[in-house]
């Protein structure tokens, strides 16, 4: 049953794509900044996993835990170095595009110097060499682990946003930064934490890109940013839950096209993006986040 496998694969890949896009959407939702270096952070997460596995034999699942503290720190510092300047500009969205495009180029160049140009990966046998059965379909263990981490990240983010004080403050800024400031919320502090979380989520996605898209290279950042951006536009800019839906739609579109019209598989997810933009410009679960 080709359709059943495509359905299962689409959902599992969808959860991975949601993970890859979650940080980008969180940062945009809180700060109205488009982080064009997002894909480069995913790439760095992939290289971190390869290095730790090759040199120290560390399982990629352990790497998930290891990349979180430095990612939070890097994101926190990056916000105060770059994000605050973007926020103070007249047009933060446009300024962020320019600023983070530059960051993306610098990160890619440094990655070439540090890691070389070759594709790096980890053998998928690290998550078992035999597929697992779901509804009678054999599914690679690495897909299940990637999707499971994506789902866990989504749930944890939901808990953070809706059941913690910091999360409530974050949502307050997403709703209206000026009003949040008026009731004592420190937007810079919350934004810095959010930026750190966004970077961390991207780095975690990078670890699983090794198994979902075959490997990592310094030049793949731009492509990953485009994919992540398509996912959050489908789901709705500024809506973390929309990212989940956007990821699933993207994954299903890709896998069903691969099954029934492979040569169009690079086109179909973006065609759906265009259709959704025409029918529902705010995305599937989006709200109006830009003023004209």
């Amino acid at each position: 049953m080709l359709w059943l496998f495509a359905l299962i694969a689409g959902i599992l890949f969808g959860l991975y794509y949601a993970l890859a896009a979650l940080g980008l959407n969180l940062i945009f939702g809180v700060m109205r900044m488009v982080n064009l270096a997002h894909g480069d952070v995913i790439m760095l997460g992939g290289f971190a996993a390869v290095l730790l596995f090759d040199r120290l034999g560390i399982n990629p699942l352990i790497t998930v835990l290891l990349v979180i503290p430095p990612s939070l720190l890097v994101g926190f510092v990056a916000y105060y170095l770059l994000g605050t300047r973007v926020q103070r500009s007249r047009d933060p969205e446009m300024m962020s595009l320019v600023m983070f495009f530059g960051v993306s180029q610098v990160v890619e160049a440094l990655a070439v110097i540090g890691f070389g140009n070759n594709e790096a990966s980890i053998t998928s046998a690290v998550f078992g060499s035999k597929p697992f059965s779901i509804a009678g379909q054999g599914v690679p263990g690495a897909w299940l682990v990637s999707a499971g981490v994506g789902l866990a990240a989504l749930i944890l983010l939901f808990v953070y946003l809706y059941h913690t004080g910091l999360g409530r403050a974050t949502r307050a800024i997403m709703s209206n930064a000026d009003e949040a400031r008026a009731v004592g919320v420190n937007p810079d502090r919350i934004s810095a934490i959010t930026f750190g979380i966004g970077v961390g989520l991207a780095a975690i996605a990078g670890i699983f890109s090794l198994f979902m898209i075959g490997g990592t290279t310094p030049s793949e950042g731009v492509g990953l940013t485009v994919t992540a951006f398509a996912v959050i536009v489908i789901g709705g800019l500024g809506s973390p839950m929309g990212t989940f839906l956007g990821g699933i739609v993207f994954g299903l579109a890709l896998m069903f096209t691969q099954t029934y019209a492979p040569v169009w598989s690079g086109f179909a997810p973006f065609a759906i993006l265009l259709v959704i933009m025409l029918v529902r410009p705010t995305g599937l679960m989006g709200r109006s986040v830009r003023s004209v």
């Binding site: 890949f13 979902m212 490997g215 691969q258 690079g266």
Partner: peptide, 20 residues
């Protein structure tokens, strides 16, 4: 006998279809 985009990096579903 199928062409796929040159940018293809996920082959799991395609392989499942091939195996069929």
């Amino acid at each position: 006998y199928q062409a796929v985009p040159t940018t293809t990096t996920s082959y799991g579903t395609l392989l499942h279809d091939i195996a069929a």
